[in-house]
Design a protein around this nucleic acid. Structure first.
Lengths: 256, 256
DNA sequence: CAGTGGTCTAGACCACCGT
DNA sequence: CGGTGGTCTAGACCACTGC
């Protein structure tokens, strides 16, 4: 009876470890600081390395840690708030500064799900690949599917593919008057090509933002953007951005 | 030279397994069907159970599988599209049908991050706990932080806590004229209490939606809602919902 | 009770990075 | 090259579910 409520409930070791490490991160480590390597940490806590890794994975998922093979584990900076504009008619994803960089453009048959939204059958569409860079870091990779009918004046003389072509398509797209957008967000895992551009391993958790652009009574384009889930916080603002300082975030985590 | 391009690139076993299983799910299994148990599957593919589990985890993260301890692994239904209303002045999260169910209400000091948004210091606020149910399944758990100043007419006679109190707070809240909302989405892991209500294990991946409600020139309330990332697809619609059939989704996955 | 997924161990080897 | 995280193995035991 007098015992001070000793962890009666069964809590997995890795979960408890996660909590302990989380608190240690708050109090004893600065952003960017390197943690001891996994083998040392595991030994220090008296667990197998796999168990320690399970805890680290949790913390990485929560955006607290950053791990790089061959380098080490560092304390991650707070998540970047990236604006996913709402009801704003922009193709660029941002009026100034941090914008999308066209990387490539090819002509391909869209995946079935996209083709269904575009109401195109098996005809190939322009597929523009773009990268979103914030604070000098790639945070998102996008595939923008544009039916030929949406950019009728596209010069056939321009390069048939590559970044030049990508810019041409975007230029033509800007001419359309946007009537609205539809957007969904879901969790996914990075495909090999996306992972490469986001500097992550295949399968890394990403937030998949699917946007449908409406113009002249139909779906003018569909975008599938994958954001790094570990470093990004998507913001949808009717009025200004939601900003939280890092300290505040940490304290919220402790409270939970 | 003459060899038919035999997997020269190093692809992890679990990643390859994920692909194989994904294709098998598309062709040989129906939604709800139970897969063979992990030990059998691992043996069948000639890998250790841990490796097989790594592949299953990926597929579960992508919403393709559902695993329940003591029961088995089943093929998951397509993700549910849940509307996260944009620029709509609702506290209920839905005009008709699938709505939020008040579960409880207590008076507590808000976590620091929330307190900062509410501009309340250490004063306790009303914390309403709500569950969002869709198709008979709990898809989200929410904590709604309401400063006393936002509901001045709240009867002091009502129960000080519990579902009755929760409904009282919501009723008073409806009286306010909403001026706007701010919203962020990020990846998180379920806390123990949320996990319980969502019928998941602690640490399960969730989409954390933080909403700031503005009224009468200030922040009237802050909501932190955690959605099951495995079963939910958040929709933000300016005009109608984005609907994709299950077949189409599967084919998109195959294409990637 | 038997069978399932969840946790944990103690190793091994590999891919990658910086020096 | 040495050190890091990433992958993989072959076990063991536990917690939970349903019969």
């Amino acid at each position: 009876m007098g015992t001070t409520q000793l962890e009666s409930v069964q809590e997995p070791k890795y979960w408890h470890l996660r909590t302990v490490l989380s608190e240690a991160l708050d109090s004893d480590f600065a952003v960017g600081e390197i943690l001891p390597n996994e083998r040392d940490l595991a030994a220090r806590f008296g667990v197998a390395r796999a168990t320690l890794r399970q805890a680290l994975e949790q913390l990485e998922l929560e955006g607290r840690l950053q791990r790089r093979r061959g380098v080490g584990t560092t304390v991650a900076p707070p998540r970047v708030g990236v604006a996913v504009s709402t009801a704003q008619h922009e193709w660029t994803g941002g009026v100034s500064g941090e914008a999308w960089q066209p990387v490539d453009c090819v002509s391909e048959v869209a995946p079935t799900a996209v083709a269904a939204m575009l109401r195109t059958g098996g005809e190939p569409v322009h597929v523009v690949r773009r990268i979103r860079v914030t604070h000098g870091q790639a945070v998102a990779a996008e595939l923008l599917y544009v039916p030929a009918s949406s950019v009728p004046d596209l010069s056939a003389i321009d390069a048939p593919s590559g970044p030049v072509r990508a810019r041409s398509v975007m230029r033509e797209l800007h001419r359309l008057g946007l009537e609205g957008q539809d957007r969904t967000v879901e969790l996914g895992s990075a495909r090999a090509d996306d992972a490469k551009e986001l500097d992550r391993l295949p399968g890394a958790p990403v937030l998949v933002v699917t946007t449908r652009y409406f113009a002249s009574g139909g779906t003018a384009a569909v975008s599938v953007a994958t954001y790094r889930a570990d470093t990004c916080r998507l913001t949808f603002g009717d009025s200004g951005a939601l900003e939280i300082s890092h300290d505040e975030q940490q304290q919220e985590r402790q409270a939970s």
